[in-house]
Nucleic acid binder design. Structure first.
Lengths: 156, 156
DNA sequence: AATAAATAGGTGTATATACATTTAATAGTA
DNA sequence: TACTATTAAATGTATATACACCTATTTATT
């Protein structure tokens, strides 16, 4: 696959954009795919998918607290992720464990196992290194991107 | 679903970012999901998925030429899309047709049907309207985003 | 020409997305 | 209290992603 391609025009073999805004939407979609792909390549050797990693990260943020499925869902980057099934796979790999909530019997609460913590430390280290080397972005540029993306999603 | 949420911190219920660059990567991933979601909502009433729409757009760009599966694949925003199966669904809906290539018997060439052209005109109109109203971006900001995203993917 | 290597497209499988439905439990209301 | 509405999680289905593998055909090499 062609992950070294820089220009959008080359990446999607097209230069017919309606305008700069149209090009920007395609560029955002392509860059997100590019980011997910390079991250997934790194996670692959640990048998983790990008989404499983996202769930583990969310659990880490609350550790050693248990987190219910709903709270994990609303912290996911992709809101329509089907969290119960992602957890199924993490349970099989013994990276997280399910338990009944003592407060609300409808809830299932999830927490990291020791293996989950360990794999997360190693993979996070790897992902951070990857970001250092593959994502060329000065802090100021990143802040600019953050501002522009939040502006474009705004509806006020 | 909470598509009106603007700030990333609210969207993913977290404000623990390693740095601005880390936040920017999450912001790009979230914005891509947000864009795909609002576009898919619009396409749904025509029974099209975002990826099917992408294939139709690529065919439109070459129409009335026929395009082989490989050429469609390398023009897709998400490179790992399984194009033969997306085409399967478009064929069932009679929006595209398959034919054997006269030059290379390994190739299948795809082209839009009249219904394909019609549905594409209507949906593109809808998507353009949506972009006008939902994506708040001045041409200059868009150009800035394009520059920054291409810079961050760069490896030279 | 015969064989090997490369290529195009299709197929199989595991995982994920998007969305609807189901079940159990809780909260709210007459 | 009884009934209704809401909520949490799980489950079912169609589509898509990611990746491996297969088959037919073409290209390259000997």
């Amino acid at each position: 696959m062609y992950l070294c391609i820089v220009k959008l025009e080359q990446a999607i073999q097209s230069s017919k954009f309606k305008n700069e805004v149209h090009k920007a939407t395609l560029n955002i979609l392509y860059t997100a795919w590019w980011l997910k792909t390079i991250m997934s390549n790194e996670l692959k050797e640990f048998g983790l998918t990008h989404e499983q990693y996202n769930v583990l990260r969310i659990l880490k943020g609350k550790h050693p607290e248990q987190v219910c499925v709903k709270d994990i869902s609303c912290r996911m980057i992709e809101k329509s992720s089907n969290v119960p099934r992602i957890i199924d796979r993490l349970v099989i790999k013994k990276l997280v464990k399910r338990a009944d909530s003592p407060f609300d019997k409808r809830e299932t609460v999830i927490s990291l196992t020791q293996s989950g913590i360990t794999i997360l430390e190693v993979t996070t280290e790897k992902i951070n290194e990857l970001m250092e080397t593959s994502v060329i972005m000065k802090s100021q540029d990143a802040a600019q991107i953050n501002m522009l993306l939040e502006k474009l999603r705004g509806t006020e």
